[in-house]
């Protein structure tokens, strides 16, 4: 059943991505002020939203783990964090490329960029902490606590463009601005690509989850073999 869901989601994500690439590259015109480089935001913004959703899912499932001590929730948290960290890397990379063209620099230390980098570091340290603890329940417990702490920074990243005057552009999506910031066709393309990336991320999480479960099974068998 899980296999089938993974294949269906993967196929849907692939079809959507091809469709979106066609729209982004061939249908939509260049942006008036930025030229062709603006197309990178069709991946930048959806990746950012996807990674925040992933970190939120990791935070929630960490909290559930602490409440129920069900190892499945720990597996969901780690799978979700790893995939989201990959998306966060995409956000930082695409943002830098865009900045190099528009601002002329790869990086600037404004609140949005800095807090996003901090976010990346926090979740990277989450994965390092997992490596450092051998005992599975202790690992799950401590990394769940760290995940909840780390999520506070995700909120800062999200809100930073409202709290501080940043060089990073302000909100553009009409759900945050009330509309009028962006051409509806372009905004629609962002949402379509968001859907595609979320599906893609979900597939990765499910695959990683399966791997994590197999690993636990192998660990159990190994312990049993040792006991015998």
């Amino acid at each position: 059943m899980r296999e089938k869901i993974i294949y269906i989601f993967a196929a849907a994500a692939a079809v959507l991505l091809v469709r979106n690439l066609y729209v982004i590259l061939l249908v939509l015109p260049d942006e008036a002020q930025q030229g062709p480089i603006y197309r990178i935001m069709f991946f930048h913004i959806p990746s950012a939203i996807t990674c925040f959703i992933g970190f939120l899912a990791a935070g929630i499932s960490s909290a559930i783990y602490l409440a129920t001590k069900n190892p499945r929730n720990d597996a969901i948290a780690v799978a979700s964090t790893e995939v989201s960290l990959a998306f966060a890397t995409v956000v930082l990379a695409t943002g830098s490329i865009w900045a190099r063209i528009i601002w002329g620099i790869w990086w600037t230390w404004d609140a949005r960029l800095t807090s996003m980098l901090v976010c990346w570091l926090l979740y990277a340290s989450y994965l390092m902490l997992r490596r450092a603890i051998d005992e599975p329940t202790q690992r799950a417990k401590f990394s769940a606590v760290l995940s909840i702490f780390a999520f506070s920074d995700v909120i800062i990243v999200w809100k930073s463009i409202e709290w501080w005057r940043t060089q990073h552009p302000g909100p553009v999506l009409s759900i945050r601005t009330g509309g009028g910031q962006m051409n509806p066709a372009m905004e629609a393309a962002i949402y379509w690509n968001l859907l595609a990336l979320i599906l893609f991320g979900l597939v990765l999480v499910l695959v990683r989850l399966r791997q994590e479960e197999m690993r636990r099974e192998i660990d159990g068998m190994r312990q049993m073999a040792h006991a015998i």
């Binding site: 800095t114 901090v118 570091l121 926090l122 340290s125 390092m128 902490l129 450092a132 760290l146 702490f149 780390a150 506070s152 920074d153 800062i156």
Partner: peptide, 12 residues
């Protein structure tokens, strides 16, 4: 591990 964990959280 301690510095790696706490400095990013302390940044704000």
């Amino acid at each position: 591990m301690l510095p790696i964990l706490i400095y990013p959280i302390m940044i704000p």
